[in-house]
Computed example of a mutant assay.
Amino acid sequence: MQFRKRSASGRRRRWLLLGGVIGILTLSLAACASDDSANDAPGTSRTIQNKGSDTLLNVALAWAEAYREVDPSVTIAVTGGGSGTGIAALINGTVDLANASREIKEDEIAAAEQNGVEPVETVVAIDALAVIVNPANPVDQLTIDQLADIFTGRITNWQDLGGNDAPIILVSRESNSGTHVYFLEEVVRKGDSDNTDIFAAKTLMMPSSVGITSEVGRNPNAIGYDGLGYVTEDEKIIAIARTAADPFVLPSVETSDDGSYPLARNLYTYTAGEPTGAIAEYLDWILGPEGQQIVADLGFVPISQE
């Protein structure tokens, strides 16, 4: 089984796309009178279909909006739905770019190869995954072990964590979300591939980041997780430590970039084979100064310009 990770122009391709909408949001940006699509010939309109991670959605929409000024001949259709949805669309040949907040799985690579598709990975950003509670919650810091016990249901009352005598309300993304998969593997299972723990049955599964922030903002006993760029003043961010012996660290651009924050991750875009033409030009722009400034403006961590 072969799988290529792409590096263009000598630069590492790291980036994250931000999402937080309920259901599937589509933006089609067209500035050319021609109705021709998927055509790389000069002077004709070209269409790029971009689908996947809701974490990356807001950034993807902002990229598409800004790129209209760079190349008006390119139409970029941006759709969310989750990392798994985007990768499935790439496997089926219905999108050009699949956004993901997790790495592609081995079974997805195998399915793609059976369809004659060779997935090529481009890291487009770094995301700090913030653990959030209601501002009225007195708890300020937690370890990964405590988070695992919370989300598996082994700890069910805030009093056990130095908080109020109140039940803990768990809020998570749905299982088709790459953010859900990351939190399951790195927090619930603590990065142990042999660990089979799962989210507690009572966990509220939300279809979007908006659902998580809404529940946490209104419920003083709720705890959830979200990309740092989605956190609002209606939530409080918890400082996280790898172990009780390690320092508690808040997520930020700086702590994500230097590796001190435990829940920082890469975000990805996948293409069917090495990108060429309009798709390659668009990815190069995303990884350049203009595209990465949008990343920073939306609260995510831009890649280093090497």
Score class of each variant (00 low, 15 high):
I303F: 11
G191F: 00
S101Y: 04
T79I: 01
T122F: 09
L161T: 04
A112L: 03
R173D: 07
T94K: 13
L129S: 13
P262Y: 00
L298H: 03
D96F: 06
M1N: 11
A98D: 00
G227M: 02
D40W: 09
I24V: 14
L267R: 03
S260T: 02
A33W: 11
S7V: 14
T276L: 15
V231C: 12
S256N: 13
R218F: 08
P247V: 06
A278C: 09
D149M: 03
E118D: 12
P275R: 04
A201D: 12
A98T: 00
V117R: 12
N164W: 07
W158A: 08
A264L: 03
N39K: 14
I48K: 14
A130C: 09
D145W: 02
L129W: 04
T271R: 08
G43D: 11
P289Y: 04
R173C: 07
W158E: 01
I126N: 11
V131Y: 00
S83A: 04
Q49F: 06
P138V: 02
G82R: 05
C32F: 09
D226K: 06
A110W: 03
I286Y: 06
D197N: 15
G211Q: 01
D165K: 15
S101W: 02
S193A: 12
L263R: 00
D149G: 06
L298W: 03
I240V: 15
